[in-house]
Design a protein around this nucleic acid. Structure first.
Lengths: 182, 182
DNA sequence: TTGCATTCTCAACACCGTGTCGATAAAATC
DNA sequence: GATTTTATCGACACGGTGTTGAGAATGCAA
C-alpha cells in the first residue's frame, strides 16, 4: 500500500509560495501568455530551478491550482445539497456568496481551458439532485438539464466578471424567476 | 477625407493566408500558448518576416480575426431583427444556425479575452430590442436583461462546445421555454 | 547531536522563438 | 518600361526554457 509519507515542510512552503506568486502576477497582468517561470520564481522569492522541482511547467502549476479550488467548491456544493432546511433560493444565494469570496481566483481560472467544463459538471449535479428531490414527474415541455446548467454557468461567469454590483440575493432571485415554471 | 486607397493584392493574399494558417493550427492544437510565429508562417507558406509586415504579434492577428467575425455576426443579428415576419423562436433558430456554420472559428475565439464580452453586448441588443417590440410594460418580477443575456451566452457557448448533437431548433425551443414567462 | 536524506541554490549550458535589420528579388501600379 | 510596394533571405542580439552537477541549507530520525 502507498504510505502517505508526510510532506517535507520545505516542499509545502515552496509550493504555497509559487501558487501565491502566480496568482499575484495574474492579478497585476491577467494575460496568461505574459507569465514566465522567471517572473513566478522572482515573485515567490525562490530560485527558478526550484520551480522545476515541483512543476513541469506553468500550465502544470495552473492545473494544480484549478484542481484545488474545484475540490473546495465541490465540497461546498454537496454540503449545501445536504442542508435540506434551505430553500432553493437560499441555496443559490449561499453558493453565490461562496463564489464571491473566491472571485479573484475564479476569474483567473475561467481563462484556463478545463475550468468552465468542470464547473459545468459540478453545477449539473446540483441541478440534477435538486430536480430529483422536488419533482417526481417533469412536465412534457421541461427544460433540458444541460441547458439549464449552461445558462446557470453563463449567469455566474457574467456576475463575477461584470455584475458584482448586484447582490448575490438579487441574482439568486432572478435565477429563481427564470426557472420558476418548473 | 481619407481615401480608401485600394489594397495591394499581395497584401490581401498574405493576410488571408496567415489567418487561415492560424485557424488551421488552432484546430490541430487548441492551446493558444503553443502557437508560434514560425509555425504560422510555415503553415501559411510565407516567410516569417512577412508576418511582421502585417501584424505586431500573434495576439494582434487573433484580435483582427475576432473583429471580422464579430462584424459579420453583428450584421446577421440586425438583419434578423429587421425580419419582423419571424417569430422569436424562428429568430433564435436562424441565429443558432448561423453560429453553427462558423462554429470552428467561434470555438477558438471563445478562448480569447474580448470575444465573450463582445458577444454579450451584441446579444443584449437583440434581447433589448425584442423586448421593446413585444412588451410595453414589464411585470414587476421581470428577469433583468443582463441576466437573460448572460444565460443566453452560457447556453450558446455550451451548445457549440458540447451540445451540437442537439439541433438548433431544439435549443431554440428550450430557450423559448425557459424565457416563456415573459 | 550526529548522520543521512531531501530540498534549495547557483552558475552554466544548449536550445528555441522573438523581433529587427539591410539587401535583394518579385510583383503591382502607373 | 520605370517606380513603388511587397515578399524573401540570412543574420543578429535578446530573452525564456529546461536541464545538469556541485554545494549549501534544512528536516528528520536514531
Amino acid at each position: 500500500m502507498s504510505i502517505p509519507k508526510k510532506e517535507d515542510p520545505r516542499t509545502i512552503r515552496s509550493r504555497e509560495m509559487f501558487k501565491n506568486a502566480v496568482i499575484a502576477l495574474l492579478c497585476e497582468d491577467p494575460i496568461i501568455t505574459n507569465l514566465t517561470v522567471q517572473k513566478i520564481a522572482a515573485k515567490a522569492g525562490l530560485n527558478r530551478t526550484t520551480f522545476y522541482l515541483h512543476y513541469q511547467d506553468i500550465q502544470d502549476l495552473l492545473t494544480q491550482i484549478t484542481e484545488e479550488i474545484l475540490n473546495e467548491l465541490s465540497d461546498k456544493i454537496f454540503a449545501l445539497l445536504h442542508a435540506k432546511d434551505l430553500s432553493e433560493k437560499q441555496q443559490l444565494t449561499q453558493l453565490l456568496d461562496y463564489l464571491y469570496i473566491h472571485r479573484n481566483y475564479l476569474l483567473i481560472l475561467f481563462k484556463t481551458n478545463q475550468f468552465e467544463e468542470q464547473l459545468f459538471s459540478l453545477l449539473k449535479q446540483l441541478v440534477e439532485i435538486r430536480r430529483k428531490n422536488t419533482k417526481k414527474d417533469l412536465p412534457a415541455d421541461y427544460v433540458d438539464i444541460d441547458i439549464k446548467t449552461a445558462s446557470l454557468v453563463g449567469i455566474i461567469i457574467w456576475w463575477l466578471r461584470k455584475g458584482l454590483h448586484f447582490s448575490s440575493d438579487y441574482i439568486a432571485n432572478q435565477i429563481y424567476l427564470m426557472y420558476r415554471v418548473q
